[in-house]
Design a protein around this nucleic acid. Structure first.
Lengths: 201, 201
DNA sequence: CAGCAAACTGGCAGCAACTGTCAATAAGGC
DNA sequence: GCCTTATTGACAGTTGCTGCCAGTTTGCTG
């Protein structure tokens, strides 16, 4: 989820210490600054040193926050604060519904300039970023596989289902939506994709 | 296909020029040497400079052949010779059968030491290698999506199906097989995974 | 078989991503 | 207001990767 559009403003209702608030605002500032620069000069045309300088932070700190350059797109600011948006929405008996809720929660699809979706272009078009997002999907699929197994699903069923949902339906829907120019609502694409898997029209 | 175990001996029946033969043997030599070194000191414990030196090749040439360090695991030696093993096996009206043929063709699963499967460990366990393999799957899924669309499938159906097959069934099966210690035949896992998608027991 | 164009290789220089270390600084409990 | 502890910045160093050019090998052609 957050790996594709992980820069949100929800969940401000958690009590945060000053350090955490500073950290969080720095993270958001760096993310915005970075995408501004990318929009100007392209992803590979911007160095981390530049991003750090423009954000008023040392390069070393950038790495502490994001780990890698691609981490800008996969880091979930709220994970550091202990908020797990994904698990809250998960219902193992209703994966389609869970997926719809996660997508809906990420942000309103209308509005090309919605800050949450500005990074989508790079996720889809920049190979290294795309690869990093896939690694996130991989981890999520692993988590889901384990949960399904706890519920009694066989290894094959659990693994294939989890991967089909995350890589096929989730990412596939977002990609198709992006390729179509983001005109129709994302949820339409998700619904279409879900019927392919579940088989019912 | 080849991205997971792309170091085979099949297709020696193609007429090759001296340059191509030299290139091919160098590629195989480098791959073998590299995995030997990895087995000794771990993936990140070996530098490309060392691999090149041990293979009797300049580092620059390594990059010309493989592009990246992970390219060792995703490069298909036979693509350079114009052999497309995948397309030959593809039947759009029988994706399950196509997948079984591709897996069967990669190599006999028996024999832990079969040279084709030595790299599997790194594909599964080394994050950067895994990511590179995912990028390969991504490309294959794209190809398959386009082919399915040409056959009249809708965008959602084509995209979700292609991704579910490559990421879910193909990679999922190999992973499960690897996790289980490579005891039962791979094709058993593929069959199990296929029934999850197609729905029939 | 000689000669030539093309492909290939190696070495060098350089950039940028990333990491370990340690001193300096800021935050939060007492 | 102090003292512990987490967080940051600066520095130096390693490694993956690329552009460039000169030297060599290959394989076609007259």
């Amino acid at each position: 989820m957050s790996q594709v559009a992980g820069r949100q403003q929800y969940a401000a209702h958690v009590a945060l210490t000053l350090r955490q608030r500073n950290r969080l605002s720095a993270i958001h500032r760096i993310m915005d600054t970075a995408i501004d620069l990318f929009d100007q000069r392209g992803y590979s045309g911007v160095t981390i040193e530049e991003i750090a300088a423009a954000s008023g932070v040392s390069p070393r700190t950038f790495y502490r926050y994001f780990g890698t350059k691609e981490g800008l797109f996969t880091a979930d600011p709220y994970a550091a604060v202990g908020v797990d948006l994904y698990t809250d929405q998960l219902d193992l008996d209703d994966l389609p519904g869970s997926l719809r809720r996660v997508i809906a929660l990420i942000g309103a699809p209308e509005g090309e300039d919605h800050t949450a979706w500005r990074g989508m272009r790079y996720v889809m078009e920049e190979p290294s970023v795309r690869a990093a997002v896939y690694a996130s999907l991989d981890r999520e699929a692993d988590r889901l596989t384990a949960l399904l197994r706890e519920r009694g699903a066989g290894p094959a069923k659990a693994r294939v289902t989890a991967r089909a949902y995350w890589f096929g339906v989730y990412f596939g829907s977002l990609e198709q939506w992006h390729l179509d120019g983001r005109t129709r609502p994302v949820l339409d694409y998700v619904d279409e994709a879900l019927t392919v898997l579940t088989g019912q029209a």
